[in-house]
Design a protein around this nucleic acid. Structure first.
Lengths: 341, 341
DNA sequence: TACGTTCATCTAAACGATGACATTCTGGAA
DNA sequence: TTCCAGAATGTCATCGTTTAGATGAACGTA
């Protein structure tokens, strides 16, 4: 049935040498003669030898696995980040272990636990919306395992991070709406504990201020930013005595949800009410009108995060954490483009 | 800096017992007295003991990791399957290692290699569109590692599989179009080496036959089924001397691509041309008109696949492979619903 | 008292790869 | 011939956990 796997000992026996020589030959150690190396490699092929990475990992404390925790892998943004990470770390011989937190703190904790137990060599995280307490990360740091945050980061944690300039993205989006003639702009604002949402809100507020538009608290709607939240907010909004003339949502999903309800109720987007989302999810280009949004250069972010990890591995724990900020890009589509008249 | 991790030996020393007793106590071995167990567990907590799963894995040949290979993790269908798998296997103490093949045979091979090297306890795969040769799977089987195929399977491989009844899904979709009065129905047909696409094509053909509609080869368009392919096909179609009255696409993406071009060219969906896709991607409900499609009960499929894996683990390699077939569900939206007149 | 049982624990050998250190061998310099 | 340097390989302990088999203590029984 299950054949016993070949080990370096089997190879050694066949060639009348020792396992350590085989090990060194396979690792291209300089002190092993070329003839031996060739013999070993040939025999390894012949016996269909597959290294047991567990044994190696146990011995030298490195698994060559990096763990990535994302809220949801089926978001275009996160899956692109993951692809970026893979691209970079694969080249250095690492594999990627993906976990989903479903935006739940509990799941995130258990993910961290699983990754630590699997002895990954590093952990890249975009934390859950629910996460407000970071003690579980402290354990990662204490263990000396490289930790890199991407997209969602926290100032209280002194670790490497890659983020986009959410402030700038939101500023650009809001400015664009203002330039389209909008004055009463609603903002769907995400959970306060997540810094990206605080920043997006700040960008929104700042743009209004710069253009001398009054900031009204009741135009800022706290939201969980899911599709259904968008539905609900839009249902509320259409009951207001005076309709706003734009929505800037911190997420494409809630923006989409709002658009659906608006359409159902005969409110014309963008003429009566312009909409801008955030993330450049793939569906934003499918819908009609196309949903204006902010692209986050996701793959780039993944590559950056991976590079930070590799740097940490090389240099040991770096002196001071590196915070990389990428510049987002405003993508203008039909949902916010008012016909000049 | 990096503190040395506590091992069972540390616990043993503190309590003046041996490591083997500690190991057994932690594993709730029946021959260990309750008092010792309690002491060990208490001390383990005190020293913040975290088992080294690598060592355990090396010793007993099981890693408690299952590998899942999907073409693309950001497809709603696949990410739901993954969630289903996770749900089931987590309960039995397994973790899930996700790999993406990007529909490339080479990447798929390297994924398999990586999973084997990581010594996963089982592999669940939906193979790449490019995959026509299954020798890399043979190695998995030879090693005695449980292999389960989902969604995309191959009859030549004698392994457990969970699929939906693609034939039935396609039949229902085509029948629905016929009942809406369509007679010239185009089919976007995926690569022949992938059985699900063969089956979908068969369902399409059979429905036409049953309703005595002539099957015309030039209405069956071979496609890679991406968004861009849909664009291209639609561009071709609108140049035909006689427009078809419906498209049944084996994928939501190519269906979407076609809809975009049709709209741009002023062709009204569904009145002039009805469209049905396949997979129930999340965007299908966002677009206008909503895209009719076939739901594949993805989470259910993941749960089933995971269960098959667990069964194999329990029973050793099963006598004869189990093929589970789930029933798909036709979801009718605006893109295929013609107003009765 | 001698002996078998049972229970709780200990001993020691794995699992497979690695690397510091020890050993052997070769050729060349003194 | 002797000695040494350096190249190539061997020895052996180690990573942390698990487990078959050995050991020993406590108890009951004849």
């Amino acid at each position: 049935m299950t054949k016993k796997r070949t080990t370096i000992h089997d190879i050694a026996d066949k060639l009348n040498i020792t396992a350590s020589t085989v090990s060194r030959a396979l690792n291209d150690h300089p002190k092993i003669s070329n003839t031996t190396k060739k013999l070993v490699i040939k025999m390894a092929k012949e016996l269909n030898y597959q290294p047991n990475s567990l044994a190696a990992a146990l011995r030298n404390g490195r698994t060559n696995i990096v763990g990535v925790i994302v809220p949801q892998a089926d978001r275009n943004f996160f899956s692109s980040v993951i692809r970026g990470v893979e691209e970079v770390v694969n080249k250095s011989g690492y594999n990627v272990l993906i976990c989903q937190s479903n935006d739940s703190l509990e799941k995130e904790k258990s993910n961290i636990k699983a990754l630590l137990e699997a002895q990954v060599d590093g952990i890249l995280v975009s934390y859950a919306k629910e996460t407000t307490n970071f003690s579980h990360y402290q354990e990662v740091i204490n263990k000396g395992i490289p930790l890199i945050l991407f997209d969602r980061q926290d100032e209280s944690l002194d670790v490497d991070a890659v983020v986009i300039d959410d402030y700038l993205g939101a500023y650009k989006a809001t400015e664009h709406l203002i330039q389209q003639g909008c004055k009463r702009i609603v903002h769907f604002c995400g959970p306060e504990n997540v810094s990206i949402y605080r920043e997006r809100c700040r960008g929104y507020v700042e743009a209004l201020r710069r253009y001398n538009i009054e900031i009204k608290d009741d135009l800022i709607i706290k939201s969980n930013l899911k599709l259904e939240d968008g539905h609900q907010h839009a249902l509320d909004i259409i009951k207001w005595p005076e309709l706003p003339d734009a929505i800037f949502s911190a997420s494409d999903y809630s923006a989409m949800g709002a658009m659906e309800i608006l359409k159902e109720n005969g409110i014309i987007v963008p003429d009566q009410l312009a909409v801008v989302g955030f993330s450049n999810e793939s569906f934003t280009s499918f819908v009609n009108p196309g949903l204006s949004t902010v692209d986050q250069h996701s793959k780039n972010m993944g590559q950056h995060a991976a590079q930070l990890f590799l740097n940490q591995i090389k240099q040991g724990s770096s002196t001071s954490p590196t915070k990389t900020v990428l510049t987002p890009e405003l993508i203008i589509r039909g949902s916010s483009l008012r016909v000049k008249s």
